[in-house]
Nucleic acid binder design. Structure first.
Lengths: 243, 243
DNA sequence: GGCCGCCGATATGTATACAATGAATATGCA
DNA sequence: TGCATATTCATTGTATACATATCGGCGGCC
């Protein structure tokens, strides 16, 4: 049923075979899944069966596999041979690595960002921060989480260094996964006004202040996590039952 | 024909069907192509036809496509829709971004590396540096280039941060491509004794010296490039023939 | 009674077949 | 002779079919 729907839909906008580059559709699906993971609608550990995804999106398994592989390289999903794909469950070590990396790169970019930021950038960032606060207030956690990641990624993009911006974007996506596993409910990642304050420093052209503030901001997020290594693989039965 | 050859070959080393996880073979092929690119045996712009690769490595196009996709995400090959894959030709902007990123990350890692480095690490690094010098002396450019990239990647790995180490590894691979396009023949990337000097600072536990030295080292490499934007797409014929 | 091994179902890995597209070439007309 | 057009060819994009490995339950054996 679902597949027929899709075919019909595609046939409606263009000829069934000659679609306007199927790659766009793949990107779209990639984003759909990516968003679902980042917004915690798909929790870490959730299995992603190829057949099911193929049916949902109305393409064959071939395309789904391609997308899953890309997600795997972005470390949002884990591909276990012969076991299929599942949403990555970051370890405590990985969480630490990711936040250390963010500390180094995002802070390091702030001076350049402060130098290059334009009025238009500021407007856009303020809008994102506003929407994030609003989402938080109205309890739309999913939206807030994604907006927060978007904010950090957008900020990095202003530096003009596409390579580092891409890296930050990936780190933010993974941070969202980390929040899903180690975050305390009710206490979401970014404090309500941190992003606004950060914008203030940038608007003032004060790169050093922005850098220091970003450092504290990230440290605060990391500190809010309750990182307790779950010994999923080989629980120490002796220790557990020694009492 | 080709397939029969391959089956026979694989049947010789192991049972035809039950190979020791085909994923290993894929990794192997990935590394083969990756090495060929890094070592400049495949120059930027070289086309990589799926059929040809499938024949060479004795697997079907399906597996090749998977590998090409992975290489594309690592930005070693460029995948143009309907036109196939080719070795990426980095632009001048990308080259700048990559070296800026290396400056930030590799330098930033040096203090932690200096703190954590062990005797064994030092031994291994010295050995790599030695082999690199030797390769340079005997004119094996390909080997020298790869060893140089390996050295930097290995160094980053010592920091203990896998995420940043992976990133550095990717940056080094891309740097190799950049060297292929913008490097001056005869003047290879890393100066002969830079790596040895760097090891010295690390051995002395002097993270700050190492950081500063790495900064100069990378700047020196970047400065040795002749980055002239080749106007491949739309050459200004008026300008060229105005004389 | 509990553990080990077997067997069916399910899902993934791989190859192949077919369709569609873009490039190169040949051809006809002005 | 030069340019526009039609055709063919080479190559990629997609779907499907088949082979293979893993997970669950069940029965036999110790």
């Amino acid at each position: 049923m679902n597949q027929r729907q899709t075919v019909a839909e595609r046939g409606g906008t263009s000829r069934p075979g000659k679609n306007g580059d199927g790659a766009e559709r793949h990107d779209e699906i990639h984003r759909s899944i990516s968003d679902a993971i980042i917004e915690h609608r798909l929790r870490p550990g959730a299995r992603l069966r190829e057949d099911a995804l193929a049916e949902v999106f109305g393409i064959s398994r071939t395309g789904i596999r391609k997308i899953l592989q890309r997600l795997a390289l972005e470390q949002l999903v884990t591909l276990t041979p012969r076991r299929g794909a599942s949403v990555t469950r970051p370890t405590a070590d990985e969480a630490k690595d990711v936040f250390d990396a963010r500390q180094m790169v995002e802070c390091g970019l702030m001076p350049e960002v402060a130098r290059r930021i334009t009025e238009e950038d500021l407007r856009e960032l303020r809008d994102m921060a506003r929407r994030e606060r609003q989402a938080l207030k109205s309890g739309e956690q999913s939206t807030a989480i994604r907006l927060s990641a978007d904010f950090h990624a957008r900020l990095a993009r202003i530096s003009g260094n596409a390579t580092l911006a891409d890296f930050v974007e990936r780190l933010c996506s993974r941070s969202s996964l980390i929040l899903a596993v180690y975050g305390n409910p009710g206490h979401l990642g970014c404090e309500s006004h941190d992003h606004d304050d950060l914008i203030g420093h940038l608007e003032a052209g004060n790169g050093e202040r922005a850098q220091a503030f970003m450092g504290r901001h990230l440290k605060a997020i990391e500190a809010s996590l309750s990182i307790v290594e779950e010994e999923a693989e080989a629980p120490d039965l002796h220790r557990i039952f020694s009492g």
